[in-house]
């Protein structure tokens, strides 16, 4: 390797570093460390609140204990919103994703445009649009469908989810080698059969990790709905702080909510990484 003999650009030998430190032990240790760290910060914030708070009134622990069930209920509402927006967004996104690989330009272009638009718009702005542009009820002849705020919020959050699912589906389909299409075509499968029987079953497992990743992001983003006045976990936490008027409780109170999200989303993230490794694909 005479790299010094020329002033032209040369390809230097490259060796990828070993995947350190080893096997499963390291990620497990890291995980345990992370969880312990979060718990420690929470305990510390509680201790600070306890020691700086007025001595004559309820202890920080008591107050936190009093509000925890309500905050947890609010958090469960966040989860409900996340399930429903994910379901709606996935259903719409799969159609758009398949539309994006359609041979018909009349399908492909609008699917592509909608995907790009909603994928590159801020989630909160989309949420505002859904809240203020959707009517509060929809009259379909004799039937009147009510649109309460929480349903509008689900639709608002489902928009960017659908756009991201659309990209995940498109990428999954595109990642299947063209030889699969070719051999299916030459066995006289029509396009729909090829898609549903040969391409999608193979693409499916490659879509799962990024889809789960998106779900975790959506779950955390559901706290945006508190901005548009829906009683979610964040709204309840804020209301509790206002009711108690104990500024030193701000840190532990929000951390309590944060811990709930962390406890829910972190395992999803770990599972995503495990599946990615197992399927050997990149999220």
């Amino acid at each position: 390797m005479r790299t010094g003999a020329t002033d032209l650009p040369v390809l230097k030998p490259f060796r990828a570093g070993p995947i350190a430190p080893s096997g499963l032990a390291a990620p497990m240790l890291l995980s345990a460390g992370l969880v312990a760290g979060v718990a420690l910060v929470f305990a510390a914030s509680l201790a600070v609140a306890q020691s700086t708070g007025p001595a004559a009134r309820d202890s920080a622990m008591t107050i936190l204990w009093r509000w925890a069930p309500l905050i947890f209920q609010g958090f469960l509402f966040n989860l409900l919103i996340s399930f429903l927006s994910m379901a709606l967004g996935t259903a719409v996104g799969v159609l758009f994703g398949i539309g994006q690989v359609s041979p018909s330009a009349a399908l492909r272009r609008p699917a592509w445009a909608a995907t790009q638009f909603f994928r590159n718009a801020p989630w909160l702005v989309l949420l505002f649009y859904a809240m203020f542009l959707l009517p509060f009820e929809l009259k379909l002849g004799p039937v009147t469908i009510a649109f309460p705020a929480w349903i509008k919020a689900i639709i608002g959050l489902a928009l960017p989810v659908a756009a991201n699912v659309s990209e995940i589906v498109r990428g999954g389909i595109r990642s299947i080698p063209s030889g699969q299409w070719e051999s299916a075509e030459s066995l006289a499968f029509n396009r729909r059969q090829t898609m549903w029987m040969i391409i999608l079953p193979q693409a499916f497992k490659r879509m799962i990790p990024p889809w789960m990743n998106l779900y975790a992001i959506l779950t955390m983003a559901t706290t945006l709905i508190s901005v548009v006045g829906i009683q979610d976990g964040l709204t309840v936490t804020r209301a509790a702080l206002a009711a108690e008027s104990r500024p030193e409780l701000m840190l532990p109170m929000y951390l309590l909510l944060l811990l709930m999200f962390f406890a829910y989303c972190y395992p999803i993230a770990r599972l995503t990484i495990a599946l990615e490794r197992r399927f050997n694909v990149k999220g």
Binding site: P177, G179, Q180, E182, S183, A184, I198, Q202
Partner: peptide, 8 residues
Amino acid sequence: FQQYNLFP
């Protein structure tokens, strides 16, 4: 085909 292209 050269690359077999079986359905995996």
